[in-house]
Amino acid sequence: ITQNLPWPIKDLGVSIVGEECYGSLVENLHLGDVVCLKLALSKGLGIGIVAGGAIMKVPQILLITSARSARGPSLESYCLETLAYAITLAYSVRHAFPFTTYGENLFLTLQNTVITLLIILHAPRRALTATAASPDPLALAAVAIAASALALFMVPINILALLQLATLPLCLASKLPQIRQNHRARATGQLSAFVVGAQIAGCLARVYTTVQEVGDALVLAGYVLALLLNSVLAVQLWAYWAAEDDIEASRDAVRIYDRIQCSFA
């Protein structure tokens, strides 16, 4: 049966794992082929990560838009993280790596760009040091985003390799403001637990797929560092969860007290 599957299914399988591994695993049911099994697992994880990356930051976007507040997410963190994603995307595209090994970076770059603009939109004017005569922060951000995207796909490949190396300190720098902000506030605000958890799972899978299919030490080091830093954020979410509940309960109590006072006024 497996040797006579419809051609669309066969073509899809061959495009994912290659003709040799498709024949071994599907047509001949040779499940002891360790090399092809590792490749199939890597491809499956890669497809899952790309699909997950397409919606990973949507909960964060919804949290900010529904609350009409950007309390929690750090503007500095998102600017640096977006730049790191964009560099890795450009580096992978220009080195012709398989799309399943980096595709989520495309979606994460786009979603992070939206979140960054939302943080700027909902930030207090004084936090952006805006004055009546100063340019619109949103317009400045849009120009910077467009210029950065153009530059990444035009710089020489050797310069791009240096930029990929720079994603290591960028990754570190992108998470430290968020970690510091959470520590100072003893709360995580509108930071999404789903997003942090998904990033940890994605980094774990990306470490495996990078080892199996790419073998680029720069890319691998970036995912390992991101895994460690996202784990720190996860610990903070867990540690400050009770504090968030206490803060919200206190606010509710104040609102109820104010209503009672108004009713007797």
Rank of each mutant, 00 (worst) to 15 (best):
H183A: 15
L31I: 07
D258V: 06
Q60L: 08
A161D: 13
S134L: 05
V195E: 10
T188M: 08
V93C: 07
I9Y: 11
V35Q: 06
L63W: 05
L191R: 00
L29G: 12
E104D: 15
I49D: 14
L220A: 09
I157R: 03
A141V: 01
E76M: 11
Q60N: 08
N105H: 10
S192H: 07
T167S: 10
C21K: 00
L31R: 00
A217V: 08
A187Q: 03
G18N: 00
V224K: 01
P73V: 01
I1F: 14
L80H: 08
H183W: 15
T131Y: 07
Y240R: 04
V17A: 06
E213C: 14
L227G: 15
I61G: 13
L128W: 00
Q236C: 02
T113E: 13
L170H: 07
I9L: 12
L170Y: 11
Y22P: 09
L165K: 01
S69V: 00
L128M: 12
K57C: 10
A70Y: 00
L165I: 10
Y102T: 12
V232K: 02
A84S: 15
R68P: 13
I159H: 03
K43N: 14
L83S: 04
A144Q: 04
V224N: 08
V224E: 11
L89N: 11
V58Y: 06
E27T: 13
A173C: 13
R251I: 12
L118S: 09
G103A: 08
K38Y: 03
A249D: 13
Y223M: 10
G32A: 03
L150C: 14
D252G: 09
P124A: 11
D11F: 04
P6A: 07
V254I: 05
L45I: 11
A193H: 02
L128C: 14
S74V: 04
Q190N: 11
R180M: 14
A54K: 00
G46N: 04
T129D: 14
L225N: 10
A151G: 05
H122W: 14
I159G: 03
F97Y: 15
Q60A: 07
L83A: 13
A86V: 02
T2G: 15
S92E: 08
A239L: 05
R125C: 15
L25F: 00
L29R: 03
T100Q: 05
I119P: 01
A127D: 15
L162H: 10
S15K: 00
N105M: 09
A130T: 12
L62I: 12
L237R: 00
Q236K: 02
L63A: 14
S263C: 09
Q111R: 01
Q111M: 11
K57Q: 11
G202F: 06
N112P: 03
P137M: 02
H30V: 09
D245W: 05
L121K: 07
A149N: 07
V207C: 14
L165S: 13
I49N: 12
I55P: 08
V195A: 12
A185I: 01
N105V: 06
G215C: 05
A173F: 14
A90V: 04
T131R: 02
A67T: 04
V235F: 14
L220H: 06
